[in-house]
Amino acid sequence: MKGILGLIRQATPASAVGDSPADTFFFSTAFADQGIDASSMVPWEARANEVGARRLTAGRGIKLLEELWSGDNFMARLGPDGLQRLEKFFDFASLPANRDVIRQDEHGNFMLVLLSGSIAVDREQPWGDRLHLTEARPGDILGEMSLLDSGLRFSVCTSLTDCEIAVLGAQALDEMMQADPALAACLIALLARKLSRRMRAVSARLSEKQS
């Protein structure tokens, strides 16, 4: 944790230290730093408009997030105070059923937490079929892999019912790193652990399907 916190504390804007104009450590600039055209980026604001998402009050959103993450072995380590401090960095929204909130092989700079409802996570195959990987439950996190490594989305995530979600974008994560580095370090470490566990499970399932 000390190592992650140290990196975050070093991630000051380039203008403050007189270095290059773009600091590649920051999540909001990482896509451009890797040569990804901004026109190919799908930010949450664009996807929200496309799928007809509606704003959810922060009060309800953070209450649901606290209830769900307080029972999660990983995210509960943020503690009640940390969960409350997350409110200023998250957007909260309601999402209709049958909407692709995340699409495979696109560049997206946001992750989401499912607060209520159900979302299917599928992998589109080259021959056109969809391999069903899992069904996300309230409290589950989706899209964090692309947010953390600026890579392409691994799967398509489709709402099966009306859903409520919490959304964290790259810009908001950068703001958290500057305004509350201890909270950001904890969140990133916990996301990495959850992501590693999930990818191991997905890899095992894909191996079973191919055998």
Rank of each mutant, 00 (worst) to 15 (best):
F89S: 04
R153H: 04
I62C: 01
R85T: 12
R103V: 03
M111K: 03
S155C: 08
G128C: 08
N49F: 07
D162L: 01
P138D: 09
M199Y: 15
V121G: 02
Q210L: 14
L195Y: 09
D105G: 01
R153F: 02
R123W: 07
A46I: 13
G143F: 00
L7I: 11
D19H: 15
I102Q: 03
E175G: 07
A184H: 04
M75V: 08
G18K: 11
R55E: 03
S150E: 09
S146N: 12
L195H: 05
N109L: 13
G143I: 00
V202W: 05
D33P: 07
T134F: 06
M145K: 10
L187Q: 07
S146T: 13
D180K: 08
G79D: 10
S211V: 15
R85P: 02
N109P: 02
G18A: 10
A120S: 09
W127H: 10
R153D: 01
R193G: 05
A93V: 02
F31R: 10
R198L: 02
Q34I: 11
E87M: 07
G169A: 13
I165M: 05
A53I: 06
F27I: 10
E66A: 05
K194S: 08
A184M: 09
T57E: 14
G128L: 04
F74I: 12
F89P: 00
F90N: 06
S211I: 14
R123Y: 12
E144C: 05
M111P: 00
L83S: 03
L173Y: 08
S70Y: 01
D100L: 04
E208A: 11
P96Y: 08
F25W: 14
R193P: 01
L206A: 03
Q125C: 05
R103D: 03
Q210F: 14
A120K: 12
G6S: 06
E164Y: 00
L65N: 03
R99T: 00
A204T: 15
D162W: 02
L131N: 06
G143D: 02
F89V: 10
S196H: 13
G128S: 07
A48P: 02
T161C: 07
A185V: 08
N98D: 13
